[in-house]
Write a protein that binds this DNA or RNA. Structure first.
Ligand code: SF4
Ligand code: SF4
Lengths: 138, 138
DNA sequence: TCTATATTCTACCCGGAGGTAGACATTGCG
DNA sequence: CGCAATGTCTACCTCCGGGTAGAATATAGA
């Protein structure tokens, strides 16, 4: 299971902003606190803004804040925005079209782990992550 | 969940050879039947040979054959040989060291899917795949 | 011995993810 | 106004997985 680095960054930033006291988080703060390359994160935050997860305020004392109710931000949506969900649909042996009628030799073994992953991504929201007891972000 | 293309190729070739009637499979045959780039597969088979999964016969009428009992070839071992297992240890948020004491916000949600994947990789052998009802390989 | 069919080895190309640099635009505040 | 702090945009670099090309080597069989 490999998320793109960008997806990791996005999740960690969103959780950090959701937990954080302050309203607006400048990229500099996120990059420093979460140990993420500054310039790289700048671009990533732009994409999260375009996707509607966060909104930005420009100029001095500007920054980013979360733009939707936490329970409406699903893990799946974050990952879809950042890296796409293709690799999760086209599963372990990578065939385009395969079904229960014509499965690969791994299908029966892979079915249940696959379902576990997909369910997790579809269910877990930012609100769940904020309420989770784990808070490690760097 | 994304296996490297090389891991997919390796699994498909091993299952094919295990099922196949013929003793020795030349790379040309594997590449054609399974629709895998010929030259690329040549190198990959070399690595599978170095790892002891298959043995080769050079010269005319040569090719590859499986070199171990099918039940001793675990999915985990194949993947480890081809792409390494690093990405499966360092899990979803990619932290080097994290434990139950100091987990990330996704730990509790991710724990069970992760265990499912690892168990599957550790348990399933080539013999299991050969006996599985699914036979789609391309 | 010669040829066709194999593996094996080395070198190179391509595209995408991750990362860096710098210019530019916007805005609060002294 | 003018400076400093911020987001925004574009161009470039590096690494690596995937893929291609071709020569070298080995061997069965005519
Ligand atoms: S047959 Fe099943 S396990 Fe195999 S690639 Fe298709 S969906 Fe995935
Ligand atoms: S805290 Fe748990 S889920 Fe998060 S990266 Fe560590 S092992 Fe994985």
């Amino acid at each position: 299971m490999r998320l793109f680095k960008s997806s990791e960054y996005a999740i960690r930033c969103l959780v950090f902003m959701a937990i954080s006291e302050c309203d607006l988080c400048p990229v500099q703060q996120l990059a420093t606190e979460l140990n993420i390359p500054f310039k790289f994160l700048g671009r990533l935050m732009g994409r999260l803004r375009a996707a509607g997860f966060v909104e930005s305020v420009r100029g001095k004392h500007g920054g980013y804040r979360i733009a939707k109710p936490l329970e409406k931000i699903r893990l799946e949506a974050i990952i879809d925005t950042v890296e796409g969900l293709d690799t999760y649909d086209r599963c372990i042996l990578g065939f385009d079209r395969c079904d229960e009628e014509n499965p690969c030799p791994l299908h029966d073994f892979w079915k249940s782990p696959k379902a576990g992953i997909q369910e997790m991504m579809a269910q877990v929201t930012l609100a769940d992550m904020v309420q989770a007891k784990g808070k490690k972000l760097s």
